[in-house]
Amino acid sequence: MNESEKLSHELQDIKQIMERSSRFISLSGLSGISAGACALIGAWFANKAIHEQHYLISELRQSSLHINTVINGDVLQNRLLQIGIITFIAAFISAFFFTYQRSKKSNVPVWGTTARRLMINVCIPMVVGGIFLYAMMQNGIYDFVASGCLIFYGLGVVNASKYTLHETRYLGYAEICLGLLSAFFIGDGIYFWAAGFGVLHIVYGIFMWIKYERS
């Protein structure tokens, strides 16, 4: 084996160990900021929809057309669900974009073993929570949607923090606490939701960006 081959081999070993052992460290702080921004925009639309609904109901009361309120109630739930899904997709895509950028820069595959591990571990509590909340909504229980979203998401983040930058753990704890608190303030769910998915993500994102990416 000549000198060049030996050195190449050495470098390859290094790379391999790094990949095998690593957490998914390409998670970008900008992803947190953008996801948080999406959540705030989504919450704004949701809040608007809720207020419009209240306005509509009071109008209907005045004109004593009570029959329609039930139907409109369903319309609101559907609208909120739509807003929620669109917000989630937008947040996911924007978060993916910045993390993809960072992973390209640091030459780590965005869909490597560590990324897969990370995703699976985030998803387990989140999918469970999603199905559970959906089942509750099917039974007309909407009171714990915001709180449930926050709690299950927080559990997902804490669970996955072992496989990425360890600071994510604190984001998870914060989401769980907020979710639990929110369960005691039913009716104000939208504000907790905005604080948890919007503000916390942005604060976390800025912190991570300053710590790891600002150069």
Binding site: E10, D13, I14, K15, E19, S21, R23
Partner: peptide, 21 residues
């Protein structure tokens, strides 16, 4: 080289994981 490579990309690693790696 192996020890350093593994530690460079992890916050911290314990002895057994390092040994296995």
């Amino acid at each position: 080289l192996g020890i350093m490579s593994a530690l460079m990309v992890n916050t911290s690693i314990n002895f057994n994981d390092l040994k296995q790696l």
